[in-house]
């Protein structure tokens, strides 16, 4: 990994709130052109990490560099290269669409009016509509339009899905996908709705209790994790979560067991609980793997 390819570099990040240590030495990097997902349960340290990345928190120890500069001391040039989407799609609500474009144009010489116009056309609202009079989903489109039009090379998107229904979440990612792929942008994205990002991110880092639990390409996150459905009449009382059995869920039709056991191993393991033919493997989703790795609480 050369310096020029590393856009975001987080090393040895530590931070506490009072006596509670939230980050205990976080390390990860984001390479140029990659779409990087940052995942973690509530309280894992995700928000703290994002705040440090966005430069609104100075860590106790460690470094967070973006384009080689500390995230809390970015130069104007680098600020213009980085687009931030704040949690809740924060924008200047008191502005209209027209005013928003006029305002941001003043700061970004490379403002792409066509890109902004494209999004506005998709939005289908009059230019004099104030952002505060739009729905959550519409606001997210405006926020994305600003990020795209400002020509940012790197995007940090904090919980893009907040407040959005399934339709808008999908639309958001569709737009993002289109522009990211075409322009080789680097993205760091988080979301509480993990399964949305399965179709989007290249690499993921899962943090748990302030440390990196796993950092790998998305395809490899699920490596070695298998899912099996057992009928509801299976006696699973004695099955406990351990290094092999990662998670047990119940749906209205079956038990779903996430495990590190292969099919053969699982048939032996579940002998006595149910018949082999009742053990039905299924494709583990990213969300399943995430819950299995981090636990349900």
């Amino acid at each position: 990994m050369s310096f020029n390819n590393t856009i975001i570099s987080v090393s040895g990040l530590e931070h506490s709130y009072g006596s509670a240590k939230v980050l205990k030495g976080l390390n990860f990097t984001v390479e140029k052109g990659k779409i990087f997902g940052l995942f973690g349960k509530n309280g894992a340290g995700k928000t703290t990490t994002i705040n440090i990345l966005m430069g609104f928190l100075t860590p106790e120890k460690g470094d967070c560099l973006i384009y080689g500069e500390k995230s809390s001391q970015l130069s104007n040039e680098n600020k213009s290269r980085i687009g931030l989407l704040h949690e809740g799609h924060i924008s200047y609500d008191f502005m209209t669409l027209e005013q928003t474009e006029k305002f941001y144009k003043g700061f970004f010489p490379k403002w792409e009016s066509k890109t902004f116009a494209y999004f506005m056309e998709k939005l289908g609202l009059p230019k004099n509509r104030k952002i505060k009079h739009m729905s959550c989903g519409q606001r997210s489109q405006v926020a994305l339009a600003v990020l795209m039009a400002q020509g940012a090379e790197t995007l940090i998107l904090d919980d893009f899905s907040m407040g959005l229904d399934a339709g808008y979440r999908r639309l958001f990612l569709d737009h993002l996908n289109q522009f990211v792929k075409d322009n080789n942008k680097t993205i760091l994205i988080t979301s509480h709705i993990v399964q949305d990002l399965e179709r989007f991110v290249d690499e993921a880092v899962i943090i748990n209790k302030g440390q990196v639990l796993l950092s790998a390409p998305l395809s490899k996150i699920k490596d070695g994790i298998y899912g099996y459905r057992l009928p509801l009449n299976a006696d699973i009382k004695n099955i406990k979560k351990d290094k092999r059995i990662l998670d047990i869920s119940i749906t209205k039709e079956s038990y779903e067991i996430i495990t590190r056991l292969t099919l053969e191993e699982s048939k032996k393991y579940f002998q006595g609980i149910t018949l082999s033919e009742n053990i039905i493997p299924y494709n583990v989703s990213f969300e399943d793997a995430f819950i299995a790795l981090t636990g349900k609480y």
Binding site: M54, N76, K79, S80, I82, L84, I90, Y92, F94, F107
Partner: peptide
């Protein structure tokens, strides 16, 4: 107040301006 509400001040802080 609009800057404080929903931490909108962050937007201003990230503008490419000292």
């Amino acid at each position: 107040y609009p800057e404080f509400e929903r931490k909108r001040f962050r937007l201003s802080c990230h503008l490419p301006l000292n």
